[in-house]
Nucleic acid binder design. Structure first.
Lengths: 201, 201
DNA sequence: AAAACCCCATGACAGATGTCATGGTCGTCA
DNA sequence: TGACGACCATGACATCTGTCATGGGGTTTT
């Protein structure tokens, strides 16, 4: 019997997935959590075999949870399901020791199969997401450029970005200009959206 | 027995919700669809009692589906479930004749209850979403302002917006300036994000 | 009919932004 | 050690954007 921890902030979906996994004879949902922190706390207690974690959760990111789990419970396989999978997430997730990465568009059969695969130490990444990640390529942005571009995402004016990044406005403009060049965009807002789509920020 | 049509592009979630609804004695999922068009086509054939529709789907918006259903199958109650509920959607949905509006964070009990409520002709709107919608208020944007602001969402420069809207760049700037004033933002990008958050565009 | 509003446009101005050149510090790697 | 690149900053310039004033044409309301 594979003991599963299920974490997803959407109650309905979490419950539904639990119902669905429980239909399998060899799977058992032993715990559920609605937030990242809750997931970690619960995992420490129940020590599940496999953790199925939603990528976007209120407090702690799914990848962050995976990272903590990898060190605290090395025997627990971690897999991530997500609605909007961006390339960067996949890369970060794999780096965090995640062994399964699925969009929520897959069928329940696949989900169950992957749970078993992960439990036996295997890996599974959704082919479509993998292809996307490969085509997205590595980020050409330097860490600072990425930082600044991320602050630009919300549309803030440069002075505010400079304040938030503790940089001079001129420096911010240089980084943004460089980022705009690298992304082929025509202004920082487009560049920020592009980088977000690629999963670079 | 209440006959339900389930539409959601995320296979896993759709299947899971179906499994969950089927646990109820008086509910029966008679059809499923992954896109808006598919939902409409299927609905015409199976003529369900209640349609449970996801808001965001590839081709046709959940609200658009509801609108068509309202005229084609007036006996069929329509309810919408959504992950990211923005105020504007709720308003549009209600105008389209939707009688139930829920975030996916609700429990399965609530979902089943609301299905029954909608089936008997009642209405149910999630309290949190209703409060948000009320606090968001009506859009102060004129139709044209909303159009232009929507084109500005992607970060395009003004010239491109002007081309796409078939307007002179000067006019675009006027509309945007007006929108920026109304939203209290400091530039069009911030204004666009704000309006999006409020559900105005 | 006048008022009020939306639509579209132009011109002018100030301030924000993108680009480029330049230069210094620091760490890494050959 | 020297080359390289990331990091931070400044100044100058051209362009883009936001704002305001102005005006004509249209519809709806009063």
């Amino acid at each position: 019997m594979i003991r599963i921890l299920l974490a997803d902030d959407e109650h309905l979906i979490r419950g539904a997935m639990a119902a669905l996994l429980s239909l399998e004879d060899d799977l058992e949902v032993v715990a559920q959590a609605a937030t990242g922190k809750e997931a970690l706390a619960t995992a420490r207690i129940v020590r599940p075999d496999v953790a199925v974690i939603d990528l976007q959760m209120p407090d702690l990111d799914g990848v962050a949870v995976a990272q903590s789990l990898a060190t605290e419970l090395p025997t627990c396989g971690t897999m991530i399901v997500t609605s909007h999978g961006r390339p960067g997430h996949l890369k970060r997730a794999l780096a965090a020791g995640v062994r399964g990465f699925l969009p929520k568009t897959v069928s329940s059969d696949v989900l169950a199969t992957v749970v078993r695969t992960v439990h036996t130490g295997g890996r599974y990444v959704d082919p479509a997401l993998a292809a996307e990640a490969i085509s997205a390529g590595d980020s050409p942005l330097t860490p600072r450029e990425a930082d600044v571009l991320e602050l630009a995402l919300e549309g803030a004016p440069i002075d505010e970005i400079a304040r938030r990044a503790s940089l001079s406005p001129g420096t911010v403009r240089n980084y943004l200009s460089s980022a705009v060049g690298k992304t082929g965009a025509s202004n920082r807002h487009e560049a920020a959206r592009f980088a977000r789509a690629k999963g670079w920020i």
